[in-house]
Design a protein around this nucleic acid. Structure first.
Length: 215
DNA sequence: GCGACAG
DNA sequence: ATCTTGTCGC
């Protein structure tokens, strides 16, 4: 287990070839999970929340939380260092493995093409998508219509999209985590988005937030 | 050298 | 991540 950015970078480089960034995603999509992490006031504690939704009704069918220690201050490119231990603990507590997981943060739109969503994908074997609220890199603004998007380019690679989930609202930044292609990933995000952010992340965010207050 | 940089 | 009122829109 990596404990420092240097070790984490080596881990990311080692695991990145194992990521599968193709395909239509789950063949039989019944449940979709959202993951988010909250931090407790002045402490070094992090609380991870997982909410599993019915893929059709978007009703919650199971929720879990787990806490952990952040260990290091946040450094760009190393979000997993702080959040992954609590996140994997929460995932392991699930009774049933979801068909798709939407992570709060980046997938392959990452300096070493291995953001948190990729990590969670390899750890679980489940299809994962990364949805970030702020741009991992410079981007061109998509047209205002819901569903419009622009590619996110890093060097000569397309690593994700700035995607409009609501008309005229600030786009979200979608990248592939594991076992799904970018087209299918954006379709899923749009399907889940009744507001700017997918229901999965909204629910997980709320749960992590009040778990952080009462724990 | 300085700023930028998922949360 | 987090500190925070009112305002606009569906």
């Amino acid at each position: 287990m990596p404990a420092t950015p240097d070790e984490a970078a080596a881990e990311q480089e080692r695991l990145r070839p194992l990521v599968d960034t193709t395909g239509p995603g789950p063949s039989d999509l019944r449940t979709v999970a959202g993951i988010d992490v909250a931090h407790r006031d002045g402490t070094d504690d992090v609380v991870a929340a997982v909410v599993v939704l019915d893929a059709v009704s978007l009703r919650p069918v199971e929720t879990r939380t787990a806490c952990g220690r952040a260990g290091h201050p946040y450094e760009p490119g190393f979000l997993a260092l702080r959040e992954l231990p609590a996140v994997s603990a929460a995932l392991e507590a699930l009774e049933r493995v979801p068909d798709l997981i939407v992570c709060d943060g980046a997938g392959v739109a990452h300096p070493r093409r291995f953001g948190l969503a990729c990590h969670v994908g390899l750890l679980t074997g489940v299809s994962t998508i990364g949805v970030a609220k702020s741009p991992p890199m410079p981007f061109e603004m998509p047209k205002p219509a819901r569903g419009s998007w622009t590619p996110q380019v890093d060097g000569d690679e397309v690593v994700g999209r700035a995607l409009r989930t609501q008309h005229g609202v600030q786009p979200v930044f979608v990248s592939v985590g594991h076992r799904i292609g970018l087209d299918a990933a954006c379709d899923q995000v749009l399907r889940l988005a009744r507001h700017r952010l997918p229901e999965t992340t909204r629910r997980a965010d709320r749960l992590a937030r009040d778990a952080a207050l009462r724990l």
